[in-house]
Each structure stands twice: as C-alpha cells, then as structure tokens.
C-alpha cells in the first residue's frame, strides 16, 4: 500500500476546465492535484486539435489548442498544482458527511488520495484505446490481446501480431522484436504515419527476414480459453491469410469513454453528470462537475463555460475546505493578497 496523498481537492481531468479550476481554487488558498489518463496536460485540446485554431476564447481572437493549454499551464504555475499523468481515477469512495465531505480517490497506478472535494472535469470521459470490431476479441483481452505493454516479459518467446501504422505500432514492433519469437506487423496500406526513422528500422528488419510485414486488415481470431492462436488477415487483393500469433496489440488510436465515472454513485444523464448551476455540484455533496462532462438546462459545451463553472465551484469548495473562514470576493486587478498569491506583488 502506497502512502496516502492528503490534499484539499482532486481534479479528475487536466483539460482546460480542470486546469483553470486550479487557478480559481488557488486564489482561495485551496490546494489541488490533477489526475489525467493522458501523458500530458490539455485533454482534447492537446490530444485532438493541438494545431487547430480556436476562435471563441474570450480575449483571444485566435489561439491554437496547444497554445491555450500552454497558457493555462503557465497561468496556474503560481499555485504549484501536482500533475499525475498517465493515470486513471478508478475509484471514489465517500468518507465524510454531506456537511463535511471527504473522499478517498484511487488511481489505476495504485495512488491513493484523501481529499475534501473532488472536481470531475473529465470532458468526454477518459481517452481509451479503440477496440477493433473483431468478433469475439473480448474473450482474448487481458490474456492475449493487449492495448498497452505493461510488462515486456508477457511477450517473450511468443508470436506477436502488432496492428497499425503509427508511432505506437512501430515503436512496439521495434521494442518487442528482440523479445518476441516472431513479430508480424499488420497495416491496411504500405504507408506509415510513424517517424521516418522507425519506418526505416522496421523495413530493414523485414528485408533481413527478421520480422514480417503484412498489408491487410485483421478479420477474425481463433483460439481457446482466452489464448489466441491464429489471426486471419484479409489481404487487400481479397484473399485471406492465417497467421499464428499468441499475442496481439491493436493500435487504432484513442476514443473517449465515460469509464469508471459511471461507478462513482453519481446521478448520470446520457453519460453526463448533472450539476446545479449555482455551484456546479453533483448529486453527491463535495463532488463537482465542470466542463463538457456536466449537464444542466442550457448547457453549452464551450471551453468558456468550463472556466465559469470552475470559478463558481471553487466558491463552494472553499466553504467545505475552510468552513470557519468568511470568503470575501476580490479582484486580481486590485487585491494585494490575491496578487501576492500570484507572485506579482
């Protein structure tokens, strides 16, 4: 059991809404930890459209997804948020009461937090690997079919089929090559999006007869008791080929799934979390929902709405974290105490 991280607030999701919530909480002396399944801050902005211009951020006639995220990260720097990337919050347990909420939050990497409030800023849910629509693939998942490498040893001396044409597919082809019995890379076309260096290294291995490259798409799987034996690949000329493989790794990018949030005892409405419009609190006192994940009458899925929601949620969080302190509303333009917190005075 790892040490418990004690903090005021755990924010689930480090997209724009979650990042800006750190700012609003920070102004009120509330400490926050951010957890995100992606390896970096920014959520959809960084993952889906880093280079795409956004035109509806107030005060920015034009800013790219990544530009906005970089600015937000810089803006919240004075509050020293702790980021926990590449981790998914898997469980949320209520420890307190409605007046004095407290929660235990656990991630899939084994971290445990104890906090007073939770802000769910999970956007469209967590980014999870896309699962190919191959009949019966579920039966092999976990044993033979993997979407990420947890332990290289799981692949030792096995025939490994890797499916896809991007960096993940190529990197794991090259990394697992020395460990696996034989690697077969399957891709729908003889062109690869991955880094040219990786493409060249892969082609050299194919030339040298040290691995196989098959152009086609996986049609069906065969095996027993969750142990994969053969994959049938549909080649582009319409014929099929059976390829022996005990391990398979499909890389088809990421998709957004609600994930474990569904199990946290919150009311849900069509995979969204209903929140009030005064505090953006959910059906569970002390748990807030901001940004694209929430719903309420008139909701607009705009980044600016997420900012507003975070600001209002922070006010209520303050009441839970500092029940005895009176909160005086202040402006960053004029308040010396806020400016001190921001490190500008």
């Amino acid at each position: 059991m790892s040490d418990i991280i004690a903090t005021d607030v755990v924010i689930v999701g480090a997209g724009p809404a979650g990042l800006f919530a750190v700012f609003e909480l920070g102004l009120l002396d509330i400490r926050a930890h951010l957890v995100d399944i992606l390896p970096r801050a920014g959520g959809q902005c960084s993952e889906l459209y880093p280079e795409k211009p956004i035109y509806d951020i107030p005060g920015f006639p034009i800013v790219t997804g990544q530009g906005l995220v970089d600015n937000l990260v810089q803006q919240i720097e004075p509050f020293h948020p702790t980021y926990h990337f590449g981790e998914m919050v898997v469980s949320l347990e209520a420890l307190g009461t409605a007046d004095k909420p407290a929660f235990r939050v656990q991630t899939d990497a084994g971290k445990t937090f104890e906090c007073k409030c939770v802000i769910v800023a999970a956007g469209g849910g967590s980014f999870q690997p896309k699962k190919p629509p191959i009949a019966g693939i579920d039966a092999y998942e976990g044993k033979s079919v993997h979407y990420a490498v947890r332990r290289m040893e799981d692949f030792r001396d096995h025939n490994v089929m890797i499916v896809g044409g991007g960096d993940s597919a190529l990197d794991w082809t090259l990394n697992l090559h020395p460990v696996a019995k034989r690697i077969t890379l399957v891709h729908r076309r003889d062109e690869f999006r991955g880094a040219p260096h990786s493409v060249n290294s892969m082609r050299e291995l194919v030339e040298a007869g040290k691995m196989d490259l098959v152009i086609g798409q996986v049609g069906s799987l065969a095996g027993e008791g969750g142990e994969l034996k053969t994959a049938t690949v549909k080649l582009n000329d319409g014929t099929t080929r059976d390829i022996a493989c005990e391990r398979m790794m499909p890389f088809f990018g990421l998709t957004m799934k609600l994930g474990p949030i569904a199990d946290w005892g919150l009311n849900l409405h069509e995979n969204l979390v209903p929140a009030d419009t005064e505090k953006f609190e959910t059906s569970t006192p002390g748990i807030f929902a901001i940004g694209d994940i929430n719903t309420y009458p008139g909701k607009l899925k705009l980044i600016l709405s997420g900012f507003h929601e975070g600001a209002l949620a922070a006010q209520k969080v303050h009441r839970y974290v500092y029940p005895d302190k009176k909160l005086t509303f202040q402006y960053t333009t004029s308040s010396t105490s806020l400016q001190k917190k921001l490190g500008v005075n």
Partner: peptide, 11 residues
C-alpha cells in the same frame, strides 16, 4: 485524411 483513416476500422 488517409493517415487518420488508419484509425478507422474495416477501411
């Protein structure tokens, strides 16, 4: 778009 189609199924 072709690059992105690599992420689609049954192309």
């Amino acid at each position: 778009e072709e690059d992105m189609l690599d992420f689609a199924f049954e192309v």
